[in-house]
Design a protein around this nucleic acid. Structure first.
Ligand code: FES
Ligand code: FES
Lengths: 143, 143
DNA sequence: ACTAAAATATGATAAAAATCATTTTTAGGA
DNA sequence: TCCTAAAAATGATTTTTATCATATTTTAGT
C-alpha cells in the first residue's frame, strides 16, 4: 500500500507538525529517535521533502527542519507523491499498467471505488488536521 | 497494495478458470505466455498455490495445472494469502506493526473503513465469479 | 575571518523481492 | 519396464528497496 519510505516520511512530518515551527527548528537526530527511524535514512527523506517544499529547513548552526504555516496546509498525499512518486496509487490492481476504466480488469469494479475514495481522502486531509487529531488524543503516533 | 507476485498469481488462476478443467490441463508454458509472466517465475507461484490446494495439478506426462469445481469456489483473498501471507493487509498504514483499533494511528480513522471493505470484498468474491465477468465481456484480463 | 553545528550531496552496502537456471520426482505410453 | 513429458524442488542471480557512511556546503556565533 504505502512504501516503508512514505510511512517514515509521514511520521516524520507529523512529528514536525507537533514539535516545530519557524521559531523552533529541530534537527534530524531529534526526529529520527522518537519516531524510531534510522537517522541517515530519514535525513534523506526529509531532504527530498524539503526540496519539494513540503517541509522547511535551514542549514548551518541553529538550523534544522520545521513546518511553516503554509507547509501545514498541504495534503498527506503530497508527501506520498514526493516519496513514492504516486505510481502506487493509479496502477491497476492486476496488471502492472495503469488502471483503465475502458478496459477494466476483473477486480476493477469491486475495488476501484474504494481505492479512489482512499485517494480522495488522502488528498483532502491536511497535515495540520492530522496533527490535531494526535493533539486531541484521538490518534497516536506509533513508533 | 498487492505485490507483483499476487497480481501474477491472480491472473494465472483466472486464466486457468477460463481455460482449464479436470479434463483439460494446461502446462506452465501455455499459461505464462498469454498472461505475460516469466515462465519459471509463474511456475513457482503455481506450485505454491497447488500445495495449498488453491489450484490443482498433476505431474508427469499429460499433466498440467487446472481448476477443479471446488477450486473455483475459493476466494480471491485465498490466493493473496498464499502468495503474500496476508501481512500486507492487516498492517497499520503508518507503523510497521499491526493495525490497532485501541491505539489507532492518525490515518486509521479515515482509511481503515475502506481497507476493511476491500478485504471483505476480496474474501467474498470467488474465482468462479470473477472469471464469469471476463466471459461476459464485462472485464478484461490484462497482460 | 574562523570555527563548529547543522543540512545537503553522493555514493556504498545490505536486505528483500523478483527472476532465472538446474536438478529431481512423477506418471503416461510404447 | 523403460523412456519421456510434465510438475516440483532447490538454489543462484539480478533488480529494487532500504540502510549506512563519508565528504561537502551553509550559517550563526565568537
Ligand atoms: S483496471 Fe485494474 S484496477 Fe482498474
Ligand atoms: S492503526 Fe494505523 S491503520 Fe489502523
Amino acid at each position: 500500500m504505502l512504501s516503508k519510505s512514505s510511512k517514515y516520511a509521514i511520521k516524520a512530518v507529523l512529528f514536525l507538525a507537533l514539535n516545530s515551527n519557524d521559531k523552533k527548528k529541530v534537527m534530524v537526530k531529534d526526529i529520527s529517535e522518537p519516531i524510531n527511524v534510522p537517522q541517515a535514512y530519514i535525513a534523506k527523506l526529509l531532504q527530498k521533502l524539503s526540496r519539494q517544499n513540503i517541509i522547511s529547513s535551514s542549514r548551518g548552526r541553529k538550523g534544522g527542519f520545521y513546518l511553516s504555516d503554509n507547509n501545514r496546509k498541504q495534503s498527506i498525499m503530497s508527501i506520498i507523491e514526493v516519496i513514492d512518486g504516486e505510481k502506487n496509487f493509479n496502477s491497476c490492481m492486476l496488471s502492472l499498467k495503469e488502471c483503465d476504466e475502458d478496459k477494466p480488469c476483473p477486480l476493477h469494479k469491486t475495488l476501484y471505488p474504494f481505492k479512489s475514495n482512499i485517494i480522495r481522502n488522502l488528498e483532502s486531509i491536511s497535515i495540520k488536521e492530522l496533527a490535531l487529531e494526535v493533539e486531541l488524543g484521538n490518534a497516536f503516533l506509533p513508533l
